[in-house]
Simulated scan of single mutants.
Amino acid sequence: MAVTLSDKAAKHVANYLTKRGKGIGLRLGVRTSGCSGMAYKLEFVDEVSPEDLVFESNGVKVFVDPKSMPYLEGMELDFAREGLNEGFKFNNPNVKDQCGCGESFNV
Rank of each mutant, 00 (worst) to 15 (best):
S49T: 11
K67P: 03
G29A: 14
V107H: 02
L17V: 02
H12K: 15
A80N: 06
R81Q: 15
L26M: 05
T32R: 14
F90C: 08
C35N: 03
E86D: 10
E86I: 05
F105L: 08
D7I: 10
P93Q: 07
F63D: 04
M69G: 01
K22S: 15
Y16G: 04
N91K: 15
Y71P: 02
F88T: 10
S57P: 11
L42S: 06
M38W: 13
K61S: 06
K61W: 04
L5R: 00
R81E: 15
L84K: 08
D78K: 11
V95M: 00
T18G: 02
N91D: 07
G87R: 14
D65Q: 12
L26D: 01
L28W: 08
D7Y: 04
N91Q: 07
N92V: 08
Y71K: 11
N92Q: 10
A2L: 01
K89H: 07
Y16P: 00
D46Y: 03
K19C: 00
D65T: 14
L17C: 00
A10M: 13
R31H: 11
G100F: 02
E73D: 14
R81W: 07
A80R: 15
F55I: 10
D52H: 13
N91I: 14
N91V: 12
D97M: 08
D78L: 10
T18M: 04
M69A: 12
C35S: 11
N58V: 08
E76Q: 15
G74F: 07
Y40S: 04
N92W: 10
V64A: 06
V48W: 00
Y71V: 01
Y71S: 09
K96H: 06
M75P: 08
P93T: 02
P93R: 04
P93Y: 06
V13G: 04
A39Y: 09
L42R: 12
P70G: 06
N92L: 13
L77D: 02
E51A: 14
N91S: 02
T18N: 11
I24G: 03
P93K: 04
G102N: 11
P50N: 09
A10V: 09
I24Q: 02
N15W: 03
E103V: 12
A39V: 09
D78S: 11
F105M: 09
F90S: 07
S33P: 00
S68E: 05
E76S: 14
V48D: 00
D65F: 13
D46R: 00
R27D: 04
L72N: 06
S33D: 13
K22N: 13
D65N: 15
E47F: 15
V64E: 03
G102S: 09
L77R: 01
G59K: 02
F63I: 09
K22F: 12
E47Q: 15
N106D: 05
P93H: 04
Y71T: 01
C101N: 09
F44T: 09
Q98L: 13
K89Q: 10
V45N: 02
F90M: 10
S68K: 05
N15T: 13
N106L: 11
S104G: 06
R27K: 15
C35Q: 01
A9H: 06
E73N: 14
G83L: 08
N15V: 07
K8V: 05
G34W: 03
V45S: 04
G74L: 06
G87F: 14
G87E: 13
F63L: 12
V45P: 04
